[in-house]
Every structure is written in C-alpha cells, then in structure tokens.
Amino acid sequence: MTMPFYVSPEQLMKDRADYARKGIARGRSVVVVAYDDGIAFATENPSRALHKISEIYDRIAFAAVGKYNEFENLRVAGVRYADLRGYSYDRSDVTARGLANAYAQTLGTVFTTESKPLEVELVVAEVGDSAEDDQVYRLSYDGSVADERGHVVLGGQAELLAERLEEGWRPGMALAEVVRLAVDVLGTQQDGPVRRLEPTQLEVAVLDRTRPRRAFRRLPSALLTDLLVTDAGEG
C-alpha cells in the first residue's frame, strides 16, 4: 500500500489562493465608484451581450471579474436568492448584506471543500436614500468580505488602479465626473501613458437613487460619448 503525500493545510490553501489570484489577474478590472445620486460601475468590455455588471434587485447590483461561467452562475444564483426572498417576505426585505453573506458562504465553501476554487472577485452594491446609506461589499475567491466606502477596484491591476482612483475621488461628485474618472482609471497602465478608451469598448451602468423602483440602468454608448466629450471640451 502506498502512502499519499502529506501536504500541509497551509500549503494547500496557499496553492489554491495562488491559483485563484492568477485566474482573476488575467481579466480586465471593474471600477465601482459612488457619486452624488448613486453608485457607478465601469469596466472595459467590448461585448454588448456578455455583461460583467448586472441588476440583481430593485436597489442592488452586481459586478464581477474572473471566469465568466463562474461569476455568471453566481449572478443567476443571486437573482434567484433576491427574487425568492422578495417573494417570501417583501421587496424591502432584500438587502445587499444578506446577499453578500450568501455569496461569502458559497465562495468560502467552494474554496475549502472543492478541488478548484472559484476564480472570481465580486462586488455587491446597494444604493440607499442618501450617500451615507449606500452599501458596497467586495467579496474574494475565498469568501472573505470587505465593506467598502466610496470606491473600489476589482481584478487585474487592482492596487495600481485603486491608487489612481483614491487620488481623483472625493464625495459628492456628479455622474459625468465619476464616469470620466473611472474611464481614466481603467486606462491606467503600469508603465506608459493612460490609454484612451472609446465608449464602444466600455460597459458602464449605474444604480440611480432618484429612480422610482428599479434603480439599475445601463448607460448606452451614445450617452457615454456625451459624458466623455464634455471632458474634451473642458480640457
């Protein structure tokens, strides 16, 4: 009888974490940033159909980076979670916190019990009546949750982009300002000048607190063009 190799739990977890991080780092980043009337999401995504940013419920949205099939599966599960909860109780009883917990448990369980961790990083955001009531949760591949304030970057060069975003962001910015900032941040490169991203390369959506029930809205490229052109006019 052969003895199986002993692998220490530390090594096992580290290997899994490295594997997940590598997978996530390959993808394009997502920027989530608060503005005066809500929360904006932006990412570089040439596809019109395969979204990285989506609506979950009336005031809740979802953004993800990593492997498409894995985060798409989590997104659908989130929509089901929210719709079932809203149906069983009331629409006002569906919260980002509850959903973030469910995701955290799922990601954590997969990370520790299955042979391959999920190569995804998620944001679950809920827009409140005022900017103070907004909630943004960032979830990692291992199920850890961070409660973020103001802005957050997911994916590949998160640290570099987060620095840029920190420099440019302040509370109470207008939508046009945060969209320009987000697009600038997305174009930031480790070495070299900022890439200029065209509206057709971008996927941008907002949770707009002024909308009556469903706050989620995608910004079509025509509107994005307008928002970015103002930039050129002022600059």
Binding site: N73, L74, V76, A77, R80, Y81, D83, L84, R85, S88, G98, N101, A102, Y103, Q105, T106, G108, T109
Partner: peptide, 29 residues
C-alpha cells in the same frame, strides 16, 4: 427558506432555466 442563512443551495446554481417558476419547482415546490 431554511437554507438561506448559509451558502446558496444547489437549486440556486442550477443552470439551463431563466424561469422563476422552474426554479421554485426545483427548490421549494
């Protein structure tokens, strides 16, 4: 509703349907 405090149960991650009714039939008929 008993599962909702923990991880999302398997029916939530079932693929192949966009229908809430199909999901309910699988999860809690």
């Amino acid at each position: 509703m008993t599962h909702l405090h923990g991880a999302l149960p398997p029916a939530f991650r079932m693929t192949g349907t966009s229908s809430f009714l199909d999901f309910l039939a699988a999860h809690d008929p």
